[in-house]
Design a protein around this nucleic acid. Structure first.
Lengths: 251, 251
DNA sequence: CCTGTTTATCGTCAGGGAGACGACTATGAT
DNA sequence: ATCATAGTCGTCTCCCTGACGATAAACAGG
């Protein structure tokens, strides 16, 4: 039957955020501790209601700023501080025991923040290695601190977000969103290694990224902040698509 | 602020469907004519409200069956008749002039149906070449019948769905969803050609798809339904990912 | 029956990109 | 000075791809 706009089931619409960064050579996600039931005391993805006159992406950007101080929009021609994109929408009837909630999840890729969690109203916010958050803790060495699973269906949302990030850096220049404005080839390589959880050959990686037109633009400067021989500094080039892509090693 | 489940702005949640198929060597989408305002008389994507106790994917599958008779689920171990996946969610505040509607768009890839539009309650349903539907009609020869743009933001949804399909058949075996259960290499190639709008070399295409383990499984039969020399029949193999991918030709 | 047309399928060859890895360079630490 | 650490340039081989020749098996029409 066609639309009958006066008779529709009411839904609440929220945005949830999968905010990823690379810290200490590990892919980490932002989680907040819930202060009230349901799932009181459990960790959850940050999120909140979409306001009555607010676009979905605007709501996601607002929540991001509230939780981290990061801006995904350029306020006054400022460069974007983080990449934000829609991930997927989750609306199983019983995913929230209180009411029918449809959550539009968004994925944020952010550089490693100097201040862990500036601003924000949440009492407990932390970066957690994603491996330690997954249900069944497929953490690397099995020595994961036993951790309660994420609230709601956030385990699935986080998995989907991590998989999106892992696949998207294959064929786009999005990995630069994890880096500061200026970075070295080695720093970019360590981002790939952390996100994919593999080791990459520094020489082949260097050849690939510097040989792809538009991916990296040298700034002229160098740095030794990683130790060793000084490395060239680069900025992200205009190219967004990597062609041919850089595929993850098998197995 | 944390959840206050009693005070939330009310939303209507709908599913919209981008149903694609390949007919006569052209990528076509299913559109329905709107019988009431707003956008009365204009073509739109099929869709409808999500019911109070219904999952999003269930709602999409239900709408699909109502409009086309296709099933995306296996009722009794039956093979899936069409591929269904979530596409993206559209929720701009004024996208529907009557009220705040958030639409979870889904993408359906279906084989060419013998009966154009069986079943269903919509008075006017048709398959339209996607090029003829796009606003600004970037139709091939510019001789497109002047056509009113799709209702609501369905032009954008359709574009996103088509782009998803175009990119996804690069690295997955999803193109087989456009084919009948048994098909030839040539038929599969014509699917790629129609979706991408390019001509592919039959010999290289044959080598690629038959050389990718798990992509195609020969059934033993042959057919001459395309004329010419008899061609082997294949079924889709278990492999879902194509590695390495088959990239669209440049330009 | 022979010929042209159509579609399918196999083969060959050259070029590009990626993995494996050697070699050299430029820093700081001991 | 020596070592450890990173970065950068080369080389070699293999595999994949694009371009394209050649053959095979059907049908249509004379």
């Amino acid at each position: 039957m066609p639309y009958d706009p006066s008779a529709f089931p009411p839904f609440a619409v929220t945005v949830d955020l999968v905010v990823l960064t690379v810290r200490k050579h590990a892919l980490c996600a932002l989680v907040v501790r819930r202060g009230e039931p349901p799932y009181q005391g459990r960790w959850a993805l940050p999120g909140g209601f979409v306001r009555a006159e607010e676009d979905l992406e605007t709501a996601a950007a607002r929540e991001l700023t509230e939780e981290t101080g990061l801006r995904s929009q350029h306020p006054e021609g400022q460069p974007t501080e983080a990449h934000l994109e829609q991930l997927a929408t989750y609306g199983a009837p019983q995913r929230d025991p209180r009411m029918r909630v449809v959550s539009v999840a968004h994925l944020v890729l952010a550089p490693d923040l100097p201040a862990p969690t500036p601003g924000g109203d949440a009492r407990s916010v932390r970066w957690a290695p994603v491996d330690s958050l997954f249900d069944g803790s497929d953490g690397a060495d099995g020595r994961e601190a036993e951790q309660a699973p994420l609230a709601f269906d956030h385990d699935r949302i986080l998995r989907d977000g991590v998989e999106r990030a892992r696949s998207k850096i294959e064929y786009s220049s999005l990995a630069t969103a994890f880096c500061p404005p200026e970075f070295t080839v080695g720093e970019l390589r360590r981002v790939y290694e952390a996100v994919w959880g593999v080791a990459l050959d520094p020489r082949n990686f260097h050849r690939k990224v510097t040989g792809t037109p538009g991916f990296l633009v040298p700034t002229g400067g160098t740095t030794t902040r990683q130790g060793g021989r000084p490395a060239q500094l680069f900025r992200a080039g205009g190219a967004t698509l990597l062609n041919p892509p850089m595929l993850r090693p098998e197995v």
